[in-house]
């Protein structure tokens, strides 16, 4: 379906443009402004040029070291949750009931964790994992495991990842489920006549149909895990030590904790740039995938 060229369409987009520009461009300019200056309090600012950026990108300085460490932690975290949530989400979507009252029930329960405020998600797992009052921590300790997410780094990581799997696998599952639902029964019947194996059906019919929604899922999960703040902050506070201090937590520490506005602003800009690049890569892949598939499917 060809779109008509009409530059008057800008009038329809204008309200969105103005509103988002107001909340995105204005604050970003403040950030750029801060990133070039240093402050000693009392609203006195001094020109610092690209000093903060140099420090940020040099791992031997305090700021650079902290940035690099939190960036690594965040990348490992994102990779870990993607590696768990995407396959698990697909399996759950494949296992979804197809008809009857259980469908509505399953959908509602799946969506439930997504609508819980993020700090409450943190609170739930903070309580659930405590060895003294939480079921999970209590059971683990009673079967002989020495589990304590407050003092042990590995346990803290385990808790934060398990919490994210609990929180967000549903999103991947629901996306895949909606992809699976769009497959006509005729496809399966044809496969049966051809004597295709279960695995062949998955590879040749189900996976291609889920391709597009899976891309959306991976994009959303990568981005949201890359800027995760509230949940790990509530559960571990970034600790023990700095072991679960992800970039956002580090940033808020510097900006609102130490009021080191210049450092925080420089960190913000680099952080934003990374996200912008990754986002662009995904966006290109997504639009290309859409363009390739459109003629075959003939529209929506």
């Amino acid at each position: 379906m060809d779109k008509t060229i009409n530059n008057k369409a800008w009038f329809l987009v204008l309200p969105v443009f103005l509103l988002v520009a107001f909340s995105a461009i204005l604050p970003l300019m403040t950030v750029v402004n801060y990133s070039m200056q240093d402050t000693f309090g009392n609203n006195q600012f001094f020109w610092n040029g690209v000093g903060w950026f140099k420090e940020l990108l040099d791992p031997s300085t305090d700021l650079g070291g902290r940035f690099l460490a939190s960036l690594w932690r965040n990348l490992i975290f994102s990779a870990a949750i993607l590696a768990i949530e995407v396959p698990l989400g697909i399996v759950v979507a494949l296992a979804m009931p197809r008809q009857g009252w259980t469908v509505a029930f399953t959908l509602v329960v799946l969506a439930l964790p997504l609508l819980i405020p993020w700090n409450v998600v943190g609170t739930i797992w903070q309580i659930f994992g405590r060895p003294d009052i939480g079921l999970f921590g209590y059971v683990l300790n009673h079967i002989g495991l020495d589990y304590n997410y407050v003092s042990n780094e590995a346990d803290a990581w385990f808790t934060v990842i398990l919490m994210d799997v609990w929180h967000w696998t549903s999103l991947v599952a629901l996306l895949c489920y909606s992809g699976l639902k769009s497959i006509p029964d005729a496809y399966y019947q044809a496969a049966q006549i051809d004597g295709a194996s279960r695995w062949a059906v998955f590879k040749a019919i189900q996976l291609p149909k889920m391709h597009r929604v899976l891309l959306i899922a991976v994009l959303l999960r990568f981005m949201d895990s890359f800027m995760i703040y509230t949940e790990p902050f509530v559960v571990t506070g970034g600790g023990p030590g700095n072991s679960t201090t992800f970039i956002s937590i580090e940033l808020v520490k510097i900006a609102l904790g130490q009021f080191d506005l210049g450092k925080a602003a420089a960190l913000s800009l680099v952080y934003n740039l990374i996200i912008l690049i990754v986002c662009w890569v995904f966006y290109t892949i997504m639009t290309n995938a859409g363009a390739e598939r459109r003629p075959v499917e003939g529209g929506a």
Binding site: L94, A95, V109, L112, T123, F128, T169, Y188
Partner: peptide, 25 residues
């Protein structure tokens, strides 16, 4: 054909996993 073996068990376990922390709260 369009589902997987043991799907009832898988989906039940997953729902329990989702509901247990909420139940505890």
């Amino acid at each position: 054909m369009n589902t997987i073996p043991g799907r009832r068990l898988i989906i039940s376990l997953f729902l329990v996993f989702l509901l247990l922390p909420i139940y505890w709260l």
